[in-house]
Simulated assay, not measured.
Amino acid sequence: MKGNPKVLILFASYGDGHFQASKALQDAFLRHGITEVIMLDLFAEAHPLLNDLTKFLYIKSFTFLPSVYGWIYNATKRMKHNAPFSEVLHSFGVRKLKQILEREQPDLVINTFPLQVMQKLKEAAGIRIPTYNVLTDFDLHSRWVHPDTDKYYVATDDLKQAVERMGVPSDRIEVSGIPLKPEFHDPCPSPEIQSKYGLAPGLQTLLIMAGSYGVMQGLRTMCRQLCEQGASLQIAVVCGKNKFLQAQMERAFSEYPHVHVYGFVSRIHELMAVSSCVVTKPGGITLSEALSCTLPIIIYRPVPGQEMENAAYLTRKGAALIAKGPAELCRHIHWLSAQPDRLEQMRARIRSLQKANSSDTIVLDILKCSRMRKARYKIQPVQRGSSY
């Protein structure tokens, strides 16, 4: 291995979270002097048409078939890495990844999405490259766990225990937190930020995040009921990349001065810094960002699968509330605004879950592991006739 390792980060573009986690790691490597860091959306590169189809189905599942997605998630949750269906899943992208490894010759590989293609190559083709899995949810799905993974980075002590129960030694699991950009750690609210987003300085701000694809159901009804409630707050609605939803919301609330509608916000930590509460879908990255900003969370209509598990975990920890519809959401907001001590209790619970400088923690540990490995590994050529 060279003095400065070459890093390959594998992610998938189902939602924006896996990309954001990967980008946070890439930036952290650069801060620590590691300049050769490649990010690869493997499934999109290897199977572009199938990737587009599955992304479309994934997005639509939130609206039309959430129970089906949840059933698949739960049915495969404890499936072993060498089960027949697991073997099929791990095989997607194998040829493409093999080509990239031979071309780029990385010294280590990081997964921020549970596609264990690298582990499949290590097992089947004799490739020996250190591989690290960075889990991006608060719930464990067995697809993250593979015996050829060198180390795991997880969000919480509870998640570490769950990985241990699947037979992984404790010293191969680091409780790091989910990787975030440094801006989310200890953000600073300011009048300048409020002015930048057109927010009034004298009102509490409720931040509503519809997800990167803007798929939160009942958004207009929710905002109307909040406005009719007469609460002394302003609402910041982030519609993500859904321009149609943004246009709808702008038309619907053009005469409501305390409803502010935005599209995709690249510096979402600024809005989090000036908000008193966030209503969101329970993606692992968004929840981690809110936790890092000590922002009380109301999780709106979580769908079955990892979102429901994320929501259930943070609710058990006292860091979030779940609202199944607009009426329940309004009750939660009224309850929190009327009882500041309850809001502060949530913030205290949130602080107990925070992991400072998560991206740097992961990167520094990986670099430490790399320095400790003295062996030099080369990618072995594929044997003639091999399916890989």
Rank of each mutant, 00 (worst) to 15 (best):
Met216Leu: 13
Ala155Phe: 04
Glu228Asp: 14
Ser212Asp: 13
His258Lys: 09
Ser176Gln: 06
Val261Asp: 03
Lys241Trp: 09
Leu219Pro: 03
Gly202Thr: 07
Ile208Cys: 01
Pro201Val: 05
Leu207Tyr: 00
Thr156His: 10
Phe184Gln: 12
Lys181Met: 09
His185Gln: 11
Lys151Gln: 08
Pro187Cys: 11
Arg165His: 09
Gly202Ala: 08
Tyr262Gly: 00
Ala252Arg: 04
Asp171Gln: 15
Pro257Cys: 03
Phe253Arg: 11
Lys196Thr: 06
Phe184Val: 11
Asp158Ile: 11
Cys223Met: 10
Pro257Thr: 10
Arg172Phe: 15
Ala210Gly: 02
Val175Gly: 05
Gly202Phe: 07
Ile193His: 08
Ser195Arg: 15
Ile178Gln: 03
Val259Ala: 02
Lys196His: 10
Ser232Met: 12
Gln194Lys: 14
Ser195Asn: 10
Asp158Pro: 03
Tyr153Cys: 03
Gly218Phe: 11
Gln234Asn: 10
Ala162Ser: 12
Tyr153Leu: 03
Gly177Leu: 10
Pro179Asn: 09
Asp157Lys: 11
Leu199Asp: 03
Val238Glu: 04
Glu228Lys: 12
Gly214His: 09
Phe253Ala: 06
Cys188Thr: 13
Pro182Val: 08
Ser195Thr: 13
Gln246Asp: 06
Pro187Leu: 01
Cys223Asn: 09
Gln234Glu: 10
Cys239Arg: 04
Leu203Phe: 12
Asp186Pro: 05
Ser232Thr: 04
Gly202Ile: 01
Gly240Ile: 01
Glu255Ser: 15
Ile193Cys: 10
Met209Ile: 11
Thr221Glu: 15
Gly202Arg: 08
His260Thr: 00
Trp144Tyr: 06
Tyr152Thr: 00
Ser170Glu: 06
Cys239Phe: 04
Arg172Val: 14
Cys223Val: 15
Asp157Glu: 15
Asp186Tyr: 15
Ile173Trp: 05
Ser170Gly: 06
Pro187Lys: 10
Pro191His: 02
Thr156Tyr: 09
Pro189Trp: 04
Pro257Glu: 11
Met222Leu: 14
Leu219Gly: 04
Ser170Thr: 11
Val168Gln: 03
Leu245Lys: 03
Tyr153Val: 07
Tyr256Gln: 14
Leu226Lys: 01
Ala236Arg: 07
Gly240Glu: 09
Met216Ser: 05
Val168Leu: 11
Leu245Pro: 08
Glu164Val: 03
Arg251Cys: 12
Arg251Ile: 08
Val238Gly: 04
Ala162Tyr: 07
Phe184Gly: 02
Asp157Tyr: 11
Lys243Asn: 12
His260Ala: 06
Asn242Ala: 02
Asp171Trp: 12
Val168Asn: 09
Asp186Met: 14
Ser190Arg: 06
Lys196Phe: 13
Val168Ile: 15
Glu228Leu: 13
Cys223Arg: 05
Pro147Cys: 04
Val175Met: 07
Met209Pro: 00
Gln217Ile: 08
Ser190Lys: 02
Val145Asp: 08
His185Phe: 10
Gln229Pro: 00
Leu245Ser: 08
Leu203Tyr: 11
Pro169Glu: 15
Thr221Ile: 05
Glu255Gly: 11
Glu174Asp: 08
Ser254Trp: 07
Val145Leu: 12
Gln246Pro: 05
Leu199Ala: 01
Asp150Gln: 08
Pro179Met: 14
Asp157Gly: 11
Val163Glu: 02
Ser176Met: 02
Tyr197Leu: 00
Ala162Pro: 03
Pro189Gln: 13
Cys188Gln: 14
Asp186Trp: 12
Cys188Met: 13
